[in-house]
Design a protein around this nucleic acid. Structure first.
Lengths: 229, 229
DNA sequence: CAATCCTGTAAAGTTTTTGTTACATGCCGC
DNA sequence: GCGGCATGTAACAAAAACTTTACAGGATTG
């Protein structure tokens, strides 16, 4: 079993690599992103921690943290990496709101120690963030509102439809067989037919309108959610 | 629900972002301005505190404070952010008037502590508790009068009905399961049936008349308050 | 103390959701 | 083009979920 999946966000490739290497060595699963935009794209409910550089080209780390917290409603822990010169003069090092801060230059030992601490505090390896919202392409899924937005237009899905879309969207690109979906969503009564899934998919597509092709069929395998195409 | 709205004024975007992120994290509502002129434009009676950088391009923070106090006659608390200790002397006068100052580099802990202290001292809110009232679409909920108005027509709800409507309206769009509602509002006796909630909802709808559809049911999930529809 | 209102439950109607079936369509190797 | 699959959809009926009405015990009010 994995210890947890960490998303590293830093526009300096060296730092990403060093962190990735060492954290993977320590047994964590690691994803890297070189910008906030890329990170927001990659961020999925299976991540259990973000290591986030504050100073980056384009969207800053703080701005990204705001998006993660507010727009996506995620309470995933964040450890901020603050560069030496600019902010360290302003901030004297602290942790607030459950987040943590590490200022560069940092020792790998320190980072790993903090990562361990934060993950233990946040419930160990529970990568489950059931309140997480998903944003992918033009589709946004708001968990607390149980609503889906396609290019900001609300899409009203029934419970089953919502569950299916959420499942597929939470692992963008991954192909789910009909059997997978049934095992995951009909835990009480797994004696439903494959074709039932097809019908649900069709209904979701109908409601997604212009974005119906986000739900792709992989003939012979099943379905997957992919915003590109 | 809200603790108060803070106006941050600093021409360094980084500092604005850091303060904004952390104060929002601490539960405050935040507006930002990158100049004194912009701040004076944005400043409104709903702000309960200003975090004001002294050294800025254009109008200085010091000058702005004077405008706020003298021309606008506002007694809104101000916390000055100063780059140098040398300026402290100039600020002691304001400090006496209930304001405060923090010199860079500062820790967020310190800022949050001061913000808390100042807001507590000034009574928490600039005026009443405006956030206790909810206005959403054509519906207005007056907490102190325990009254609901639909398009300005008074709607007389019983206690339970009022509690339910208030709960749902306090998070517009969010879907509350019957269980959520029962856990929240029947804390003493959580052994009431789901159907009871339905009946209450029906009674509220009856009283809301033309606006009954503000209370929407999300089949399989629960109920939510949404003025759109 | 009686009259009234508030609340929770029950049961009878309605609507929505959901699983299934049946049939249409498209793709592939012949 | 022809079978043989695999997928897309419309239609339907059962099941589940929701709304409404009715009622009785309790609380509240005057």
């Amino acid at each position: 079993m994995e210890k947890g999946k960490i998303l590293i966000v830093d526009d300096e490739a060296d730092i990403c690599e060093i962190l990735q290497f060492n954290l993977e060595n320590a047994g964590y699963d690691v994803d890297c992103a070189s910008s906030a935009e890329e990170a927001l794209d990659k961020l999925s409910p299976e991540h259990s921690l973000i290591l986030l550089d504050v100073m980056m080209e384009g969207m800053s780390g703080f701005k990204m943290a705001e998006v993660v917290r507010k727009e996506r409603g995620s309470r995933i822990p964040i450890i901020f990496l603050t560069a030496k010169n600019a902010e360290n003069d302003l901030l004297t090092g602290f942790s607030a709101g459950g987040d943590d801060y590490i200022s560069k230059p940092f020792s790998i030992h320190e980072v790993i120690a903090r990562v361990k601490a934060v993950l233990r505090r946040s419930g160990g390896m529970s990568a489950e963030h059931p309140e997480d919202n998903i944003v992918s392409g033009k589709i946004r899924i708001d968990m607390s509102k149980k609503m889906v937005y396609a290019a900001d237009n609300p899409v009203l899905l029934s419970k089953k439809e919502f569950e299916i879309l959420y499942l597929l969207a939470s692992h963008e690109g991954r192909v789910y067989s009909r059997e997978d979906i049934i095992n995951e969503l009909w835990k009480d009564a797994p004696y439903v037919l494959d074709r039932t899934v097809d019908v649900h998919i069709a209904r979701i597509r109908g409601k997604l309108g212009p974005y119906k092709n986000y739900l792709t069929n992989r003939s012979g395998y099943g379905y997957c959610f992919s915003p590109v195409e």
